[in-house]
Nucleic acid binder design. Structure first.
Lengths: 235, 235
DNA sequence: GGCGCAATGAGACAACCGTCACGTCGCGGC
DNA sequence: GCCGCGACGTGACGGTTGTCTCATTGCGCC
């Protein structure tokens, strides 16, 4: 795809004039990265902004012990690392491609020039940061209050509503993640994901179909299980 | 204090002209609230913005079971609830005064008019949201990776550096919080805070002086204990 | 100075979960 | 088709923590 028309579709740059956009396109670099490529790590000085054209990027923190906690994942049309770009600080987390992804890199100096000339960008950024903030509040609450099974149920329910296919047997989803990647999203260990999946299967709220493919007969019931207070201890 | 000169000191409104500021001051309401006053709760439609003149306000989420997780606390000069104001959504969390506090309430319509007329506000908001976002990343990581004792050690170390008094015996801090309030900050139960405090005392990294008063001989050592990986299991 | 209530300390107990260990499964490459 | 390796399932085990319960302390208020 032409870089300038790609940029046009991104909320961040929607308000730009054609010349600003073509200039930006000329100075940014589009590249395809393999799955598992590290874009940047926590604490690094910010070099620029990445925009996801295709694929998926996850933003996460790691513990010294090697555990990982995903903060958010961004797909096509979304940008990554706006925050350090606008407050001048280091990257607050690390970023890695989950799958093979095509990304557009906008160098820091280029973005800053844009930011100075187009105050409208600030409005777009405010909205984007707001979205992140709400999401992170959600992640925080989930970590603080819910056990692993409930977090998994919540994740699956959200996933089903976002990208599940409705059938007459219920909603079917294709998890393009390994259990280990799931454990990173949920802030837990791989084995706990296995156990939680078994728990949900035994309760009948999910049905494994094939490798990474799951049917959810009743998303509402799954969501009920995701609420704390209704612990999974009886039966 | 005169409301308009108070508003002047707030980063959010620093760029405003005198007339805009006096108009804003005329339409906002300053009031003193007792400790424990609920300003708003999660999910409510946003009525406006609160600015802390004196005292302390905590922003938190609650679980159905009654547990609480503090997301951030704001003191004098800081505002609360900018996010729902700018993205039009509901309050993402609840807010309560920790101690007796004097707050200035800016009605939503008033703020929106200001926001339209002064695009500079967006820049200030971006910075404020950025600060929140970084803080919340910190909270999330802490919840995901650290046990209660480590979270407490981290909290105390931060607190000591922010508002401790240096003595020749070490840094002394006055925790103007009950153990229960501490447990809300740390996302745990009151009893666990008691246990963690005892643990840290036995290790010698903190010394209880009086009710709510603690001496920290070596903040660096306390901070070391706050890192995960060095679990508190031996000795 | 005593009363009352909130704050704190402490013990018991079970659930939850991270970790280690090991076995199995499945898929791609040769 | 076999081999190898990554992904997954499972059991055991111990540490951590939430919850319940009750004793104790301390402080404010009459």
């Amino acid at each position: 795809m032409e870089t300038s028309s790609l940029l046009r579709q991104i909320p961040l740059f929607a308000a730009f004039g054609d010349d600003a956009l073509t200039r930006l396109a000329a100075r940014s670099v589009a590249r395809t990265y393999a799955a598992g490529h590290v874009l940047f790590t926590t604490g690094e000085i910010c070099r620029g902004l990445y925009i996801v054209e295709s694929g998926r990027v996850r933003i996460f923190r790691t513990s010294p012990a090697g555990r990982e906690q995903v903060l958010h994942t961004e797909g096509p049309g979304k940008a990554v690392a706006e925050l350090p770009l606008i407050d001048g600080g280091p990257y607050p987390a690390s970023a890695m491609t989950d799958v093979e992804s095509r990304l557009v890199f906008v160098p820091r100096a280029e973005f800053e020039a844009l930011y100075r000339d187009n105050p409208d960008v600030a409005v777009a950024i405010v909205h984007e940061l707001g979205r992140r903030l709400r999401h992170l509040v959600h992640v925080t609450e989930t970590l603080a209050f819910r056990d692993v099974a409930a977090r998994l149920a919540l994740f699956l329910a959200d996933y089903a509503e976002r990208s599940g296919q409705q059938t007459d047997q219920g909603v079917e989803i294709t998890l393009n993640r390994t259990h280990e990647e799931l454990s990173f999203e949920l802030g837990t260990a791989r084995e706990s994901v296995s156990r939680a999946l078994k728990q949900l299967t035994q309760k009948g709220v999910i049905e494994p179909l094939a490798r990474k493919r799951i049917r959810i007969p009743d998303v509402g019931r799954l969501r009920t299980l995701s609420r704390p207070g209704e612990r999974a201890n009886y039966e």
